[in-house]
Design a protein around this nucleic acid. Structure first.
Length: 497
RNA sequence: GGCGCAUUCGUCUAGUGGUUAGGACGCAAGGUUCUCAACCUUGAAACAGGAGUUCAAUUCUCCUAUGCGCUACCA
């Protein structure tokens, strides 16, 4: 039997990085085993589900390269089937109508209400004490026919336990008397999560359910449902959660955009780099290396090496330098400087286009120049955004000056205000404007002025590129070319800032 | 409250009944350089705590602590 796995997000927000990792592990597992990777949108909570969020999830998955092998399933399309399943269980006596009036949550904080209720019960609640559980079918029918509203609950057996072997967490057991008779269908006829999931997983012929650890205890309920429905129980693997610094839950509400996958796309991450990073959050191939292509991840991936303890996604709120996990940033930089140039170019092109810095000549007459320039500047960049920010001066005359750089490298040496235009004049008479020739000219110039070469170079860097860091100035001169170098050396704009 | 799961440097992790507990990011120092967040070298940095088993425990068992999850007519 071929393996079939699914990623089943609920569209109640954007694609969370924890969910992204679940999707990735499902995908790797499918590829590794030659199976299928499917996608199901769990949009049964109509109040919270939005199309916007579905789009964002699809977009995120596409960006990171995890597209499903078959058509997307929308859970809400199957509501009728879910209802039929509940009715079937009712007919077979495996479920019952619960006529208890629906409780309206009094508290806004539902979680707290649940805990309070559980605490009040002091752990001595009898899970099978529902008065309608043993109502005869006739009595139940009579009440139902008279129009009394009811929910349908699964009849969990009085005695026994469920167990399963989780591929990550090992053998799991749970006593029936710890599981409440779960509601399958709300009194308004709306099918609930556990029923919907199980029905859909059966219908989609899912062989391995790989999902977040928050579902570990739900699994027992779901197994009960598989059994009641007479369907084979799939294998399960639960993944440790990804937490925020301090071991707290990583949530959209508290941590904002940092948890959204699209944030990384928009921040100039290379999808392969982020995918690589996230793959290593909770799993390791057991090797002393960190850079893996997708094919290598597939080859190395195994559920047995998935961790049981949650991983912390490390970042410092409000820090420009450490705004997201340092390792993710490092990995992206590593990809930018180490990937084959021809693979990087399309990304840079897209970035320049979106920054309105792209010129068609870069694909044509100036192709060689463009490629060598990208190659020159990429070594110091962390994200694709850097090509249009820090690297702006290479592609446009309209670039910003970093005031600190101006101060430190230009204004601190007032002579430069005359020297640099003078150097421009020297350049004007240079026929062969090449790296070595420029070196001779600048060295001679510095000696003549009795100053250190660095003063000239750093000043020129600030003036020509707007920033204090960058490649060797000889390369910068050469890359910008004689004309632009001269123009910028003579420019007084920075001096007046 | 009940049930469950987890615990190796700050973070991601490797690892074993006997190891100088390894790597990566980050951090620090030094080197190189016209600058640097690049590059090279070096350094600081961990087995949650307590019992037990054992010649020997970070590794096995138990307890405690801490964290997380579940405990809904949410998903």
């Amino acid at each position: 039997m071929t393996t079939r796995v699914r990623f089943a997000p609920s569209p109640t927000g954007y694609l969370h990085i924890g969910a992204t990792r679940s999707a990735l592990y499902n995908y790797l597992f499918a590829r590794k085993t030659g199976g299928k990777f499917l996608l199901r949108i769990e949009d049964t909570d109509l109040a919270r589900s939005t199309d916007e969020s579905t789009r964002s999830i699809l977009e995120g998955l596409k960006w990171i390269g995890l597209e499903p092998d078959e058509e997307i399933v929308f859970q809400s399309d199957n509501a009728e089937k879910h209802r039929q399943a509940a009715v079937k269980l009712l007919d077979e006596g495996k479920a019952y109508r619960d006529f208890t009036p629906k409780e309206q949550p009094t508290d806004k904080n539902i979680k707290q209400a649940i805990v309070d209720r559980a605490r009040a019960a002091h752990g001595e609640k009898h899970m099978r004490d529902n008065p309608f559980r043993d109502l005869s079918m006739e009595e139940s029918d009579v009440k139902a026919n008279s129009g009394e509203p009811f929910a349908i609950r699964l009849k969990v057996p009085m005695e026994g336990k469920t167990s399963f072997d989780d591929a990550v967490y090992g053998h799991q057991e749970r006593d029936y008397n710890e599981i409440e008779d779960l509601v399958l269908l709300r009194s308004d006829g709306h099918p609930l999560y556990n029923l919907a999931v199980v029905c859909d997983d059966i219908e989609m012929r899912i062989s391995d359910v790989i999902r977040g650890q928050d579902h570990l205890t739900n699994t027992h309920k779901q197994i009960l449902l598989y059994e009641a429905l007479g369907a084979p129980v799939p294998k399960f693997a639960h993944l440790p959660l990804i937490l925020a610094p301090g071991g707290k839950k990583l949530s959209k509400r508290i941590h904002g955009e940092i948890v959204s996958l699209t944030t990384y796309r928009d921040a100039g991450f290379i999808a392969a780099a982020f995918r690589n990073f996230i793959a290593l959050l909770g799993w390791s191939a057991g090797e002393e290396r960190e850079i893996y292509t997708l094919a290598e991840l597939v080859e190395k991936f195994s559920l047995d090496h998935v961790h049981r303890n949650p991983a912390i996604f490390n970042f410092q709120e409000g820090s420009a330098r450490h705004w997201t996990d340092d390792k993710a940033l490092w990995m992206n930089a590593e990809y930018i400087r180490a990937m084959p140039l021809e693979k990087l170019l399309p990304f840079v092109k897209a970035e320049l286009k979106s920054a309105k810095l792209w010129r068609e000549e870069y694909d044509d007459d100036e192709k060689d120049w463009f490629e060598s320039t990208v190659d020159l500047i990429r070594h110091r960049f962390f994200t694709l955004k850097d090509f249009s920010n820090q690297g702006r001066a290479y592609f446009s005359e309209d670039f910003d000056f970093d005031l600190a750089a101006i101060e430190k490298n230009l204004k601190k040496f007032p002579e430069l205000q005359n020297w640099l235009p003078e150097l421009a004049e020297r350049f004007a008479s240079v026929e062969d404007f090449s790296h070595d020739r420029i070196e001779d000219v600048v060295k001679e110039f510095a000696e003549e002025k009795g100053t250190k070469l660095g003063v000239i170079m750093n000043g020129a860097r600030a003036l020509l590129t707007g920033v204090a860091v960058g490649p060797s100035m000889l390369s910068v001169f050469e890359t910008l070319g004689k004309e632009k170098s001269i123009l910028r050396l003579k420019s007084q704009i920075a001096w007046n800032m």
